[in-house]
Amino acid sequence: MRIGLLADLHANREAVEACVKALEAAGCGRWVILGDLVGYGAEPGWVVDWVRERVADGAIAVLGNHDQAVVAGNADSMGPVIGAVTAWTHSVLDQQQLAFLDGLPLQVVDEDRLYVHANAAAPADWAYVSNRLAATKSLLATPAWLSFCGHVHEPALYYLQAGSASHFAPGSGVAIPLSSQRRWLAIPGSCGQPRDGNPAAACAWFDTATRQLGFLRVPYNHELSAQKIRAAGLPQVFAQRLSEGF
């Protein structure tokens, strides 16, 4: 079985559609959503509905810090610029959509895999996995053989060894066979708001039979997503960064 993984979708409908199409072409039949469905982008309603439908079909989704802030309608939690988007998002989602976000779990364990938005060492504190030390903490906090998280927008793969975990920057699209003799932590990268200088949407797949992991970069119509952000009157900077991927 091949699982498609999306993280940090950030209300970007075009990016989600493109990633889903690419992952379906790669043979994915199940979905895992690693949090931050909303925030920054102009189509939170569409993205929440899409995830809700998948979850109704057995997909797994976890809560992200933006999802939590939007549910609370908390415009102050991440500064005034993001706060404006948070308040706007809260205002355009209906009660059912907000209730769905509110009901998302912080983490889910499925067989030998852990799905969580932030660092597994303190998932509710929204700690990042942005370096080898943080990755080591996250890996040591769970017995799971393979963890997936988001929150950090750059794709990465960490693996446990003596000392600090090692870091690998995926880039070639080559499927990576994950050894069962050590433990791994994979970050698919942000679907809806890439920040590594490449505007293409990021996502990943994992094959439970072959134990292979694939990182994908999918080009999508980011100009359209940016237009929608401007049309909604959201801060310009969130439109601009989509075309530059910063």
């Binding site: 793969l157 693996y159 090692s166 690998f168 880039g171 080559v174 066979p177 050894s179």
Partner: peptide, 10 residues
């Protein structure tokens, strides 16, 4: 070249 090097720094 395109896969994690398990021996690199160990």
């Amino acid at each position: 070249v395109d896969l994690p090097d398990l021996l690199a720094e160990q």
